Amino acid sequence: MQRVNMIMAESPGLITICLLGYLLSAECTVFLDHENANKILNRPKRYNSGKLEEFVQGNLERECMEEKCSFEEAREVFENTERTTEFWKQYVDGDQCESNPCLNGGSCKDDINSYECWCPFGFEGKNCELDVTCNIKNGRCEQFCKNSADNKVVCSCTEGYRLAENQKSCEPAVPFPCGRVSVSQTSKLTRAETVFPDVDYVNSTEAETILDNITQSTQSFNDFTRVVGGEDAKPGQFPWQVVLNGKVDAFCGGSIVNEKWIVTAAHCVETGVKITVVAGEHNIEETEHTEQKRNVIRIIPHHNYNAAINKYNHDIALLELDEPLVLNSYVTPICIADKEYTNIFLKFGSGYVSGWGRVFHKGRSALVLQYLRVPLVDRATCLRSTKFTIYNNMFCAGFHEGGRDSCQGDSGGPHVTEVEGTSFLTGIISWGEECAMKGKYGIYTKVSRYVNWIKEKTKLT
């Protein structure tokens, strides 16, 4: 034993070699072989497995989906700052455009905790909710729209109204504003409101030439003092309507412009014939205590009207009353817009006519005020429907199939267009061939041609 100890002390290297040989010859039971080890760690190889990531292109799944990435790591994937920024906006807080917040056709661009709407022409605001041009839906104005110097929408209202708090709607500024039905039992019968379409306001006024200088022999019209197929109006439903009495009662109609003036057809009036105007009328054979009678003290036909040349060209006249009318729910003026808007309103496509005229061709006159909704007829169809001249200051309205029309005794009465609950004068009943005849239409004086003249002559002093 002493000898062994001496050998170990003198030859430590020998001992180490012996131990190493023993270990190498022993069977290893701690580690699995290569094949079995792979069965336990069965993990798919990654895209760049075996390579240094710093030297390969980034992978979106590896960089940002398996674990949260930084902007720089995302930049490695896209290799483009702009594309990385677009991805980053949604990656950080989701897609803010998912709810489609942009209105009126706006395009949404996502941002971090926010979004941006790219608005089409005519709109602005956070969600493109603000109209900035009158060309689109009248700028959301209830009545009139004008573009300011910086191309912003400025709404306005006709006389007797003021802008509401929203700067879009119009509200009454006087007790009985024009064009409004205020009798409670008839307010439910107000005709369907007309909503502004998209309009090209630059070209809204037709490029028409008034044929002022045409000389033409007097034409022989049949029954051209021209509501057939209409309905009984309720008291106060058309408070701007008046009836004219002269040699015979209810020979023509008219509309209240203001307390002192009536507008009617020029062919209705004769110099030297006494005319009485009755406002607030409903049943011409009954006294309903809503009527107001006034005498006409002055007749002003349009300066281009000449019955000797043509009885229905420039067929418009103004009547001055001896005493002002007292405005109330049964006696209310009709609204008159400017030339541009009167023309736009007419193009809405349908209007209402009213009167006490004959209820059928050569038949009896109506006792109760009649009204009828009539569609506008395109000019080409209008011209083809008659052998008589249709001037540019006239328009056609009615039904091709016949059966409904204005008729004798309705002449001078109103053709009105309702705009968001307020009625505007767009025409004056003038003439036609018979009444409600198939293929024939009622012919009306186009008020847009005469609004400046009306307003100039009827100013209240």
Rank of each mutant, 00 (worst) to 15 (best):
Q2P: 10
I7D: 03
I17P: 01
L19S: 01
L23A: 04
L24C: 05
L24W: 06
C28T: 05
T29R: 09
F31P: 15
L32H: 15
D33P: 03
N36M: 07
N38T: 14
R46S: 14
Y47F: 11
Y47C: 05
G50K: 14
L52I: 10
L52M: 15
E54H: 08
V56R: 06
V56A: 14
N59R: 08
L60A: 15
E66R: 07
E67Q: 03
C69Y: 05
S70K: 15
E73R: 08
V77L: 10
E79K: 13
T81V: 05
E82K: 14
T84N: 15
T85A: 08
E86I: 15
Y91T: 03
Q96P: 06
L103A: 03
N104G: 09
G106V: 03
N113K: 14
W118G: 03
F121Q: 10
F121P: 14
E124C: 07
G125F: 01
K126G: 08
T133V: 05
Q143E: 01
C145F: 02
C145R: 02
C145L: 01
C145M: 03
K146E: 11
K146I: 12
N147Q: 10
A149G: 06
N151M: 11
K152M: 11
V153N: 09
V153K: 09
V154D: 09
C157P: 00
C157H: 00
E159Q: 06
G160T: 08
A164I: 04
E171N: 06
A173K: 07
A173V: 08
V174H: 07
F176S: 05
F176A: 04
P177E: 01
S184E: 09
S184Q: 08
T186V: 06
T190Q: 12
R191T: 04
R191W: 06
E193R: 05
F196T: 11
F196C: 15
D198M: 10
Y201F: 09
N203R: 09
A207L: 04
E208M: 08
L211D: 07
I214N: 03
Q219N: 05
S220W: 03
S220N: 08
R226Q: 04
V228G: 04
V228H: 11
D232A: 07
A233T: 09
K234L: 04
Q241N: 11
V243T: 08
L244Q: 01
L244T: 01
N245G: 06
G254C: 00
E259W: 02
K260L: 08
K260W: 04
K260D: 02
W261R: 01
I262S: 00
T264D: 01
A266V: 02
H267I: 02
C268I: 00
V269H: 02
E270G: 06
T271C: 04
A279G: 03
A279L: 00
A279S: 02
E281K: 12
H282K: 05
N283M: 09
E286A: 08
T287Y: 09
E288W: 06
K293R: 12
N295S: 12
I297W: 03
I299V: 09
P301K: 07
P301W: 07
H302T: 02
H303Y: 13
H303N: 10
N304V: 03
A307H: 07
I309L: 11
N310K: 06
N310T: 10
N310C: 07
K311M: 07
H314L: 01
L319G: 02
E320A: 02
E320M: 05
D322E: 11
E323N: 13
P324C: 03
L325G: 00
V326C: 11
S329I: 04
E340G: 14
I344A: 14
F345A: 08
L346P: 02
K347P: 01
S354T: 13
G355D: 03
G357S: 14
V359T: 07
F360Q: 08
H361E: 09
R364V: 13
L367M: 07
L367G: 13
L369T: 12
Q370T: 05
L372G: 15
V374E: 02
P375E: 06
T386S: 15
T386I: 12
T389H: 12
Y391C: 15
A397W: 02
G398E: 13
H400Y: 12
G402H: 04
G403W: 12
S406A: 09
S406D: 11
Q408E: 07
Q408W: 14
G409N: 15
G409K: 14
D410A: 08
D410F: 06
H415G: 02
E418W: 09
V419P: 01
G421C: 02
F424K: 00
I428C: 01
K438C: 14
G442I: 14
S448A: 14
S448L: 02
V451S: 14
K457H: 15
K459A: 06
L460R: 13
L460F: 12
T461P: 11
T461A: 13
